[in-house]
Simulated scan of single mutants.
Amino acid sequence: MAAGDFPGASYLVAGDGGILAEGALGSAVLRPERIAAATSTLYDLASLTKPIAGSCLAAVLSSEGRLSCDDPLSRHLREWNPPGDAARVTLLDLLTHRSGLPAWRPVYIHASGRDEYLEWLKRLPLDRPPGERVVYSDPGYILLGFALERAGGAPLHRLFAEKVARPLALRDLLYRPPRSLRRRIAATEAGNRRERVLAGTEGDGYNGWRAGLAWGEVHDLNARALGGSSAHAGLFGTARAVFLVAREILGPGTGLLDERQRELMRDNLTAGLGEDRSLGFLLASNPGTPAGSGLSRRSFGHTGFTGTSLWIDPDARRLYVLLTNRVHPECREIDMNAIRRGFHEIAAAL
């Protein structure tokens, strides 16, 4: 923070004996006013949404018999009838990023809402056949969210509230936060400089770029085009709320997940495919992960573009949550993973 890499942070470190350290530093908002960060600050969790909502909901719906992770995507999305290899993509392919779908596309330039997104993604060519190689994919988790909604019979934000947040009594982990919570929310980017660069010439002529500050609304534009709720991004939460979900994943928890589901979240399901991944998580057995030297090689975790991360060490029985809004007020190129490794090294010594 002293270097100006990000304005503020909230953190939590816990073990079997309970919370070991919890606190907040710096500012949650710099513009249009300065608001201090607090442990009650809600952060845009960005891609932490993938394991916390996408994977957890898949596990819960599986336990209810509403889906199997081995199901073809087409079993839940009847409209999913693309030509070629894409027709055989499974939910597990999406959950482990081995579907063959590309890493990212600015779908919002071409489509709006779930029906248009599904039609556009159906025409998107795969980069490789399913199951051949791991490539982290936002479009894959967007499709996963659509399948979860069909299997669960409700919109994603409602499914998450009913099947994850409510059983854990979590009021501070939600999609589409109401405006009444705005002053508790960490602001993110003013404008869309980062996504405009990523979109390149594909964005020429697009008139939907965000003009103002993202404060209380999701930073990710694909999630915004889907009404603020997607399995790839959209959740807002506090470090304490993220910790309470992570405790269920580490186990034994309160019964939200069973032991087999927890195994799938920590075991390598993509051996030999270029990157070790479990059900929704990156494994520390990969070289150069944000886990760093402070965590065991059996650790697993996830990060979010806005500057968030969660890592779980099953050997040490430790949980590490670090939430920042490093894209506020603008997106800067920093080595956020180096900062995460430093945090883990310090926190592991507690």
Rank of each mutant, 00 (worst) to 15 (best):
L148T: 07
S99C: 07
R332Y: 02
D71N: 07
R266F: 08
A154D: 13
G272R: 15
P83W: 03
Q261F: 00
R105F: 03
L92K: 07
W209R: 09
G15D: 13
I312A: 01
A59K: 06
D93L: 04
A38T: 15
A46P: 05
E22R: 15
P72C: 06
L282G: 00
S62C: 10
G292S: 08
W120D: 12
P82M: 05
A103L: 03
R114Q: 15
W104N: 04
T289A: 07
A239N: 14
P106N: 08
W80Q: 04
D70W: 00
P72Y: 02
L257M: 09
T188V: 13
L310H: 08
P167V: 10
T201P: 03
T289P: 08
G145T: 10
G153F: 10
G216F: 02
I334N: 01
P32E: 04
Y141D: 06
I35G: 04
L170Y: 00
R240N: 05
H76V: 03
C69S: 09
P287E: 07
R98L: 09
I334T: 07
G307E: 06
G342I: 00
P130V: 04
S47Y: 12
W311I: 08
L94F: 05
E189T: 12
S112F: 03
N81W: 01
P167D: 10
R98P: 06
G212R: 15
P83L: 06
W311K: 06
R193P: 00
I109Q: 02
G113V: 02
R182C: 02
S230H: 13
T201K: 12
L264Q: 13
A87Y: 00
A225S: 15
A199N: 02
G84Q: 03
G15Y: 02
A46C: 03
N222G: 05
S74R: 13
R277V: 11
R98Q: 12
V327N: 05
G54L: 04
L283I: 01
S285M: 08
F300G: 02
M1E: 11
D115S: 13
P167I: 10
L91Q: 03
A2Y: 12
P290W: 06
D44Y: 07
I312T: 05
D115P: 00
A223I: 09
D93F: 09
I109G: 00
P129A: 14
G274S: 07
G203Q: 09
A9H: 07
L25N: 13
V218N: 05
F343C: 15
D204G: 06
F236Y: 11
R158N: 04
A9V: 10
G8K: 08
A233S: 15
S74L: 09
D44N: 11
P252L: 12
A36V: 13
I334R: 14
L91I: 08
G307L: 12
S63Q: 15
G251A: 09
G200I: 09
S285F: 00
S230W: 14
P314W: 10
R31M: 11
D138N: 10
T289F: 12
N222C: 03
S278C: 10
G288D: 04
L264E: 13
R105K: 15
T41G: 05
A87V: 12
L269K: 10
A231P: 07
W120T: 13
Y11N: 03
V197K: 15
Y206M: 02
A214T: 13
Y11Q: 05
G4E: 12
A190V: 14
L156P: 02
E263T: 13
W104H: 08
T96R: 04
